[in-house]
């Protein structure tokens, strides 16, 4: 089968439009994940053992079940209780919650990498816990967490095609639609692959550079 360039150019605008939607889905999902992940990690550090254990198990549950199934769960469970969520809303919730569980692990690693003496010193100068987090712990926990956070930013971007199954009109959905309409799959699927590569490779590179820059700024090796 031959690659048809004329047709490629013809369908390209639709793919550019869909790329924008994919980026929106990834960005929206990531925003949810960044915030919720922080909540999840802080909830695991409360002095109440029962809360800590429950949250820990919830995180494990989310991390060890397929995102695709979670997407379906969020999308179809609402209507059973009379709550109708649009594909976009349920897609963002599912992907955001899924990655929040991953990000909470990244944050945890970062927080645990801060030496114990920093906590003790903050306590010694009578700093309240919230201030200790904000001014001492989080700034130091961030640089080691950047590469993990960056990996999951790329990861969330690569997982957005799963939202196509509930009808979010992102890249994969567009490729399926264009392919089915014309009964040609070579160009649409290949283009999706190339677009993903063209975005995720430079992003991964930029994240590495950013991490180096932050480390230098903070005076870490």
């Amino acid at each position: 089968m031959e690659w048809r360039w004329d047709w490629t150019w013809e369908i390209l605008p639709r793919f550019i439009d869909a790329t924008g939607k994919t980026l929106m889905a990834a960005g929206g999902g990531y925003a949810i994940a960044v915030v919720l992940g922080l909540v999840l990690v802080l909830a695991q550090r409360t002095p109440y053992r029962i809360v800590t254990m429950c949250v820990r198990e919830v995180v494990e549950f989310i991390r060890s079940t397929p995102l695709l199934l979670q997407v379906f769960f969020v999308f179809y469970v609402g209507p059973q209780f009379g709550i109708n969520l649009s594909p976009w809303t349920s897609g963002l919730i599912a992907i955001g919650v899924h990655y929040a569980a991953y990000l909470s692990e990244v944050y945890r690693g970062g927080i645990e990498s801060v030496p114990k003496g920093q906590w003790e010193a903050a306590k010694a100068i009578n700093m309240p816990v919230t201030q200790t987090y904000r001014r001492i712990i989080i700034p130091q926990a961030l640089p080691p967490a950047i590469s993990g956070m960056g990996n999951y930013l790329v990861g969330i971007f690569k997982d957005t095609p799963m939202l196509s199954v509930i009808g979010v009109a992102e890249l994969m959905h567009t490729a399926n639609a264009v392919g089915a309409l014309n009964y040609r799959y070579l160009e649409p699927y290949t283009m999706v692959g190339v677009i993903f590569l063209a975005i995720s490779l430079p992003t991964a590179f930029l994240i590495t550079q950013f991490e180096k820059w932050v480390r230098r700024k903070m005076g870490m090796k």
């Binding site: 089968m1 690569k158 997982d159 957005t160 095609p161 799963m162 196509s164 994969m172 490729a175 392919g179 799959y185 070579l186 699927y189 290949t190 999706v192 692959g193 993903f196 590569l197 995720s200 490779l201 991964a204």
Partner: peptide, 23 residues
């Protein structure tokens, strides 16, 4: 490694299932 890590599993799956037969 870069191609398989840089694109989605779903894209690869569909590519292998729908496009490879064309070759």
């Amino acid at each position: 490694i870069e191609i398989f890590r840089g694109t989605s599993l779903l894209v690869q799956l569909f590519w292998i299932f729908f496009v490879l037969p064309l070759f």
